[in-house]
Design a protein around this nucleic acid. Structure first.
Lengths: 189, 189
DNA sequence: TATTGTTATACTCTATAACTATA
DNA sequence: TATAGTTATAGAGTATAACAATA
């Protein structure tokens, strides 16, 4: 696809104002090569393409989540809580697991709490830490959103099974090297 | 690395509040599998990892660009202009090539213009369209920023050469299928 | 009528710094 | 002293809608 009834090119995602018949990232790569940056043209193209791919996928997810009143960030928080044994987690821990700033967690929890999807409670022993607890409505909404997201985004992601495995491998190494987490992978002490 | 002098884990990028000894995305994948989502656990993990990788790379780029007073979005605009024959481009066309919203282009150009890096001029024939023209300072800054970015981000991207080729192939197919651009790839009419 | 671009508005997410209260 | 969390503030990108000028 890529053409509407009048023969104009269009964009299923991205809402761009003008069509393209050639890959702009490939064009950029060739520009880079022409201007003396042969050695970095490929990494530049790969990273630019990664950013564009992320944008497309994020837009798909947000489109699916909008009817639930959720953003992707807030959905991730609910999903994380729903996989916890007792549906509760320290702010602290949520920040680490979701890999976002403490202020982002505060902000997300504020809104989720206001919507009645989570509640803040006090940690029994350490009075500094606050726990985020999933409400019954939160659990229900998370389950419904997960079903939709899985059906409409993840089940037909646009990557082949083989490519998915490849991406997991490449990104896993990258993130470990970047210091996101330590070891665990077999063969990487 | 991943440990500071006191033996605490830390994060070179991301400014997270608590360390992790295991990959949180792999943990999430296993949670998904345990809860009956075996068929989408891998795509979910791949996409989540992609988003995290994008975040790390974007942070690296923004860190390098900050001393130049540029964000990545604004840098991309300058770089695009500097590769144009006469250093000028219609707003329209920039929006299409950079694959961002028209309002984002307006916003970026506003700030670049205010910084004296670009100037708006009128299209000679079509009075509706405005052209963005790179100023000498803009061209100079773009060149300096490109050198830094290439040296500090792209030259040692954290991906092997082989993985970079793989990523380009996978994302190219994905973006074409998503409608970002039409055909061009050999074997894909 | 359609297109180009701007403006106004709103909503995220991100980041820093200052602050409290607890440990 | 260090940690957990909040608040305030600022900045960025994104999106929609309404609009003016032009084609």
């Amino acid at each position: 696809m890529g053409l509407d009834k009048l023969g104009h090119e269009f964009y299923p995602e991205g809402k761009l104002s003008q069509p393209l018949s050639r890959d702009p990232i490939l064009e950029a790569q060739r520009n880079w090569e022409r201007h003396g940056w042969q050695d970095v043209a490929e990494p530049m193209a790969a990273i630019t393409a990664l950013m564009r791919t992320q944008q497309i996928l994020l837009q798909r997810a947000e489109t699916v989540l909008k009817p639930f009143g959720l953003t992707f960030a807030r959905y991730e928080m609910l999903a994380l809580l729903s996989f916890t044994r007792d549906g509760a987690l320290a702010m602290n821990r949520a920040s680490a697991l979701l890999q976002v700033h403490a202020t982002s967690v505060t902000n997300a929890v504020d809104r989720l709490e206001h919507a009645g999807l989570v509640a803040r409670t006090k940690h029994p022993t350490d009075k500094r830490t606050t726990l985020i607890a999933l409400s019954p409505q939160g659990r229900e909404l998370a389950a419904a959103a997960t079903t939709e997201l899985n059906a409409k985004v993840f089940a037909d992601s646009g990557f082949s099974d083989r490519d998915i495995s490849t991406l997991i491998r490449i990104f896993s190494k990258f993130r470990r090297d970047a210091g996101d987490f330590a070891s665990e992978e077999p063969g990487h002490p």
